[in-house]
Computed example of a mutant assay.
Amino acid sequence: MADKDINPMTKTALELGPVIAFFAAYLWLKDRIFTIGGTEYGGFILVTAGFIPLMILSTALLWKLTGKLSKMQVMTLVLVVVFGGLSVWLNDDRFFKMKPTIIYLVFAGILGFGLMRGQSYLRHVMEEMMPLAEEGWMILTRRLALFFFALAVLNEAIWRSMSTEIWVYFKTFGLTAAIFAFFITQGKLFETYGTKPDDDSGSEG
């Protein structure tokens, strides 16, 4: 399927909409208990059950409108379905809370594996957005791999030691803010190793 142009607002709504809906629904239902088929379910489990089809729908619409999905989007959807499904099936919120840990460990592992081979896999997915010299890509990849590993550890520490409500706030806002802050702090690297579109791939700007 050929790539298609999409309104940036529509794309953002499809990417962030399910997460915002999850957060709003959790605040609404967090203190309620539902009895279904003789089994009691907390609000978090019910919200997770609703989040799974919403995530599938938004990802399908994104694919239909853009004609493509990144490997990151596909993997995230698979993990949402698997770990969210386990949480609902077993009535245990721990599986869904572990999902960010798995995602960030996988990201760190993939980037680390590429670095061991002397390659920046990050370059393959982000080069069009921010062209860098080869050395810049290697530095950024090392930093991001360590950053993802730190996020995985942080997620584990928070969901295991703090309340579900604190974890939901962390998942919705904390992780997003952390990733944004990471790239903001890489300004010096982008300035030092940034290249112009018509520069040779190995030249430094």
Results as ranks from 00 to 15, higher is better:
residue 45 I to P: 08
residue 79 L to W: 08
residue 116 M to A: 15
residue 95 F to H: 01
residue 63 W to M: 05
residue 38 G to D: 10
residue 100 P to Q: 10
residue 68 K to N: 11
residue 30 K to R: 15
residue 140 L to A: 13
residue 67 G to H: 06
residue 15 E to Y: 01
residue 122 L to K: 07
residue 60 A to F: 11
residue 40 E to C: 07
residue 118 G to Q: 04
residue 127 E to Y: 05
residue 45 I to M: 11
residue 117 R to I: 06
residue 37 G to H: 04
residue 19 V to I: 13
residue 46 L to P: 08
residue 48 T to N: 09
residue 71 K to L: 12
residue 85 G to F: 07
residue 29 L to G: 00
residue 43 G to Q: 11
residue 106 V to A: 14
residue 36 I to N: 05
residue 114 G to H: 09
residue 58 S to M: 02
residue 88 V to L: 01
residue 108 A to W: 05
residue 59 T to L: 02
residue 102 I to Q: 03
residue 79 L to Q: 11
residue 99 K to E: 09
residue 101 T to L: 10
residue 19 V to W: 03
residue 75 M to V: 12
residue 41 Y to W: 04
residue 57 L to N: 01
residue 64 K to V: 01
residue 107 F to P: 03
residue 130 M to K: 13
residue 119 Q to M: 12
residue 22 F to H: 05
residue 23 F to W: 12
residue 71 K to M: 11
residue 134 E to K: 14
residue 90 L to H: 12
residue 118 G to R: 02
residue 29 L to A: 12
residue 100 P to N: 07
residue 107 F to G: 04
residue 27 L to W: 04
residue 41 Y to T: 07
residue 117 R to H: 12
residue 101 T to K: 09
residue 16 L to F: 15
residue 40 E to L: 06
residue 25 A to F: 13
residue 113 F to W: 15
residue 108 A to Q: 07
residue 62 L to P: 00
residue 142 R to V: 04
residue 33 I to G: 06
residue 78 V to E: 03
residue 18 P to Y: 05
residue 113 F to L: 15
residue 126 M to L: 15
residue 13 A to D: 04
residue 14 L to H: 05
residue 141 T to W: 08
residue 143 R to D: 14
residue 66 T to S: 14
residue 71 K to H: 12
